[in-house]
């Protein structure tokens, strides 16, 4: 059976630019959030608050960004025959791994004396919410084709 789809270069899903933009914008917002939470953490809880704010924001930004990054990585296999399996394997495998690492981090940092856990929790919540806001802004301002961007084969000629 011949494959009616175009060559492998055209099979990359149209979601790539949106996800890349979300990661870039997320990085910029994360940089701003780092400063804000660090200052607030330092003001309210001193050095431990500063450390907690930095760790909390970093955890939120990294763990929320991994989903988009895993989709981008999975899309590199778009031309493979095993794309659907590989895609969900990478995205959901990454998700599972992320949560295991997150739970281990939470357990390890719980009793750490060098950071303020309350500030860490609040920074994490702030980071998660900021990340969601960025995602929604990117989605609502993205221009995604409603139909496929697959190129049609050239029209037959008479000669």
């Amino acid at each position: 059976m011949t494959d009616a789809r175009p060559e492998s270069a055209d099979r990359t899903p149209t979601s790539n630019p949106v996800l890349r933009r979300a990661l870039t914008l997320g990085g910029i917002v994360a940089a701003v959030l780092f400063v804000v939470t660090a200052v607030l953490g330092f003001v309210f809880a001193g050095g431990e608050g500063l450390a907690g704010a930095l760790v909390g924001t970093a955890m939120a930004v990294v763990f929320m960004g991994i989903t988009a990054a895993s989709i981008l990585i999975a899309n590199r296999f778009a031309s493979s025959d095993l794309f659907v399996g590989a895609f969900f394997g990478i995205v959901l495998g990454g998700w599972l791994l992320k949560f295991i690492v997150f739970i281990v981090l939470v357990v390890l940092l719980r009793d750490a004396a060098w950071l303020d856990t309350t500030v860490l929790f609040l920074s994490l919540v702030a980071g998660v919410i900021a990340s969601l806001v960025v995602d929604v802004i990117v989605i609502t301002t993205s221009r995604m084709p409603h139909v496929s961007d697959v190129e049609l084969p050239p029209a037959p000629t008479d000669d």
Binding site: P13, T14, S15, N16, V18, L19, A22, A60, F63, M64, T67, A68, I71, N75, W95, F99, F102, I103, V106, V107, L109, R110, T117, T118, L120, F121, L124, V125, V128, I129, S131, L132, D135, V136, I139, S142, M144, P145, H146, D149
Partner: peptide, 26 residues
């Protein structure tokens, strides 16, 4: 491609609750 983006935003919102829920351990 379009469905992937929608899936991603769906997962983002769902996992946000998980992160906050698990982080209450702090």
């Amino acid at each position: 491609g379009r469905l992937q983006v929608l899936m991603w935003i769906g997962i983002a919102f769902t996992e946000a609750l998980a992160f906050i829920g698990i982080a209450t351990y702090f």
